[in-house]
Nucleic acid binder design. Structure first.
Length: 572
RNA sequence: CGGAACGUAGCGCAGCCUGGUUAGCGCGCUUGACUGGGGGUCAAGAGGUCGGGAGUUCGAAUCUCCCCGUUCCGACCA
């Protein structure tokens, strides 16, 4: 490819709205162009990278027995009615009506569509297991797209779905896909990807992992133990509870605490630490039912954990009116005096493990001292609903957990029968008995992966692409092309490399050296040859790697062979 | 959905407060010359519904109101 012909201008200036390295370089380098909020066109450079990423993903999916399909982007809402998700998924699902007023939607994930396929195409245990996958456009009407390609509304995703006759079989296959994912991110040159335990969220199901590209600009927060044994998303991470020394229970004592509502005020007023108090937090779920969360005063409630524990898909802080409606006093609510028929109480284990805490008296301006949870109090749910902080102890090793930020580039779920049951996707087993298929699903965000590669591999001039996905393998700069055979040598090398199957970008524009070098850095091709009157005077060309690891003069005749060798070596 | 800001050439911005010839600058683009190893210099050009609508005024990019769009922070987010 001649750079003079390449569509996709490099920009000198940073786009106004770009904050992250990947966003800045993808736009400045002419890889993508914004069209609307969170909606981008891929230019030739970006397209070449995406195509290579997709090729690697396909290869590994096929290796674990995947069969590629292509499902529609536009789906009838009735499919989502079957699974119940047209109810539970909110505004990020774009819905519309066709000309006959039939409710339709744009697919944001394809469990429903693939179950529809599976139930029509397979009905015997003899056909199981199988895995279908596609690489296709998804649309999610995100409330707030950001970070360039990190969070967009329209994007390309590889989504895969497996169907099994037994949970054991799913688990075995799940591990295989996990390994395939590790290979994929390795081959993509992403050294900063870790797989962590995660929350299944709206997907449902029990076991799931997220593949996180560690990056400062990442939106997700995760915790990793220093030895790497334990890795988990903020939404599910747990820690070893550091309990205060348990004291013998003292008698309950009611104390006057005028106008002290918050933990800080009460603790200061009574001269105790926040960890010796008990906090009451009220939430309302999607139906307006109240949930009363009880946790030690120095710890915050983790809403994701609570949501999962009570099985709600939406939780909001309850208002005073809702709190009074169940007979509690805002600011002074107490687990002691609460009417448990009117509200579900969830107690964090921190409270169960503490003694003689200060709690609300469920009466304005009063608290109790010396509250001790009676462990076998009936109807009390005791669980871990605590927010983990950096430095809290790893539940496995006991070492302090380290907090990281990450970009979720892939995820895998053991879905079980969540969709096959509701959508009646069954098979006949060896005994002729009808059973729901057992499902797994596996996603990778293609554009997000491209952006994450930049986050993990760039310098101040631009991206440093790994050979496996670089838009080109060799970049030729012809300096001063009108002089002393420069063009002749450049053309010859360009022609020969192309002939030998190397992907070459040839800067034939005759710009100033600095101008060409800056463009080359923005394009980030791993190997660079610079040809100029100066180098030709010695019968040589200059060879440089984009990552700066090599910079040397090589004989003109040797250059082509060397490039071929290096490309072959890097592609393994 | 809450808070804040912004909208002037392809991109990045000034002008607005205090209304007044022909709306300006940088980058990019076109033409030419010089130049030639990290975004060079000079000269000549092309490129604008000043987000939209209504109003105030002799006169609006500038003041007022409404609408639209965008971005940032938060909420939310397989």
């Amino acid at each position: 490819m001649r750079l003079s012909r390449l569509i996709g201008q490099r920009l000198k200036e940073t786009p106004r709205d770009a904050q992250t390295a990947s966003h800045i370089f993808l736009v400045r380098g002419g890889y993508v162009r914004p069209v609307s909020t969170g909606i981008y066109s891929l230019l030739p450079l970006g397209m070449r990278i995406v195509a290579k990423i997709e090729r690697i993903i396909r290869d590994e999916m096929n290796r674990v027995g995947g069969q590629e399909v292509l499902m529609p982007v536009v789906l009838p809402q009735e499919l989502w009615d079957e699974s119940g998700r047209s109810e539970t998924v909110g505004a990020e699902l774009l819905r519309f009506k066709d000309r006959n007023d039939k409710p339709m939607l744009l697919g944001m994930t394809h469990e429903e569509a693939v179950v529809h396929l599976a139930r029509t195409e397979a009905n015997s245990y003899k056909q199981l297991p199988f895995m279908l996958y596609q690489i296709q456009t998804k649309y999610r009407d995100e409330a707030r797209p950001r970070g360039g390609l990190i969070r967009v509304r329209e994007f390309t995703m590889k989504d895969a779905y497996s169907f099994h006759a037994s949970q054991e079989n799913l688990e075995e296959y799940y591990d295989e896909v996990h390994q395939a994912y590790v290979r994929i991110f390795n081959r993509l040159g992403m050294k900063n990807v870790v797989s962590i335990q995660s929350d299944a969220g709206m997907m449902g199901g029990a076991v799931s992992h997220e593949f996180m590209a560690l990056a400062e600009c990442g939106e997700d927060i995760l915790f990793i133990s220093p030895d790497g044994q334990y890795k988990a998303n903020r939404e599910v991470v747990t820690s070893r509870l550091v309990a205060l020394e348990k004291e013998p229970p003292k008698p309950l004592e009611k104390v006057h605490t005028p106008d002290r509502k918050s933990i800080e005020e009460v603790a200061e007023f009574l001269g105790v630490n926040a960890s010796q108090t008990c906090k009451a937090v009220f939430y309302a779920d999607q139906d307006g039912s109240l949930i009363f969360a009880v946790i030690r005063g120095d710890i915050e409630v983790n809403e994701a954990k609570l949501r999962k524990y009570v099985g709600a898909y939406e939780l909001n802080m309850a208002n005073d009116e809702q709190i009074r409606a169940i007979g509690a006093e805002p600011g002074y609510a107490s687990v002691l005096d609460i009417d448990r028929r009117k509200v579900r109480v969830v107690v964090d284990r921190s409270v169960a493990e503490s003694s003689n805490l200060v709690v609300g008296a469920n009466q304005a301006d009063y608290h109790y001292r010396n509250f001790n949870l009676c462990r076998d109090a009936e109807g009390l749910d005791i669980s871990d609903i605590a927010t983990v902080r950096e430095g809290d102890l790893c539940p496995v090793t006991g070492q302090p957990l380290v907090m990281h930020r990450g970009i979720e580039v892939g995820n895998i779920f053991q879905l079980g029968t969540k969709y096959t049951q509701s959508m009646n996707c069954q098979f006949l087993d060896e005994n002729g008995k009808s059973k729901p298929m057992i499902m797994g699903c596996y996603g990778i965000g293609v554009g997000r992966a491209m952006a994450s590669v930049i986050e993990g591999s760039h310098d101040k001039f631009g991206p440093v692409w790994p050979m496996a996905i670089a838009p080109f393998q060799v970049h030729i700069c012809a300096l001063n092309p009108k002089k002393e055979g420069v063009t002749e040598v450049a053309e010859a090398i360009y022609g020969e490399l192309t002939e030998r199957g190397i992907e070459v970008l040839y800067d034939d524009r005759g710009e100033k050296a600095g101008f060409m070098f800056n463009d080359a850095d923005l394009i980030g091709v791993p190997l660079r040859l610079v040809i100029s009157p100066k180098t030709l005077a010695e019968g040589k060309v200059e060879f440089k790697t984009r990552d700066g690891s090599r910079s040397e003069m090589v004989d003109t005749e040797r250059a082509v062979d060397l490039m071929c060798e290096l490309v072959a070596a890097e592609l393994g």
